[in-house]
């Protein structure tokens, strides 16, 4: 099982979990001593309802590192990343949003990024990008659901923006 090494480090895990719970507003099932069964992803919810992410289900189909990189203390899956990220240490946080910022294109973030000329990761996706690239990418390969509303229900605000009630004009299509 992919999560066995985690269970051997309960203290670190609690800390890591606690952080991710706070940061992701995660709901951890009371019965889960090790990994969360469900995580509510709602920091970006506006046009869509928060995602009830079934963590327990995904633990069975993918290695931790596929989503969490090397942060869970398991070897990095990508050999290119492993050249630097080789130390098998559990990070203080395994939450996506601690590295992938919610506002990757804000003037302030771009300024900090460009001021750091030695920065290696110049192309790190923001939080929304990281979620979708990872989830949709894997779902396409594994045959999982890929439609927008397969994962999150659209809100009334979302329906308005998408003009869900739009009707083609009578007398044919316009250009």
């Amino acid at each position: 099982m992919a999560n066995t090494p985690i269970q051997s480090k309960p203290n670190y895990l609690r800390l890591g979990l606690l952080t991710s719970v706070l940061l992701l507003a995660a709901v951890v099932s009371a019965s889960a001593a090790a990994v969360p069964e469900k995580v509510t992803l709602n920091v970006l919810a506006e046009l869509y309802e928060p995602v009830e992410f079934n963590h327990a289900l995904h633990v069975d189909v993918a290695e931790c590192a596929v989503c969490h990189h090397q942060t869970t203390g398991l070897p990095e899956a990508d050999s290119r990343c492993a050249r630097c990220h080789s130390g098998n240490e559990l990070n203080s946080s395994v939450a996506c949003r601690d590295c992938h910022v919610a506002e990757p294109f804000s003037a302030e973030y771009l300024r900090t990024k460009e001021a750091d000329s030695e920065r290696y990761h110049i192309d790190k996706p923001g939080l929304k990008g990281a979620y979708h690239l990872n989830c949709v990418g894997c779902h396409s390969e594994m045959g999982g659901p890929t439609g927008c509303q397969d994962c999150h229900t659209r809100t009334a605000a979302g329906d308005a923006v998408f003009h869900a009630d739009a009707q083609p004009p009578v007398g044919g299509k316009s250009h």
Partner: peptide, 29 residues
């Protein structure tokens, strides 16, 4: 200093906003 609405709305980060000079570096990367 904000990205255009289309960029902000893109879930896949298929649209990356930044200084043109930086974007060329990112593309090469």
């Amino acid at each position: 200093g904000q990205p255009p609405a289309c960029v902000a709305g893109c879930p896949q980060e298929a649209l990356t906003f930044g200084h043109r000079a930086s974007l060329i570096k990112i593309a090469r990367e």
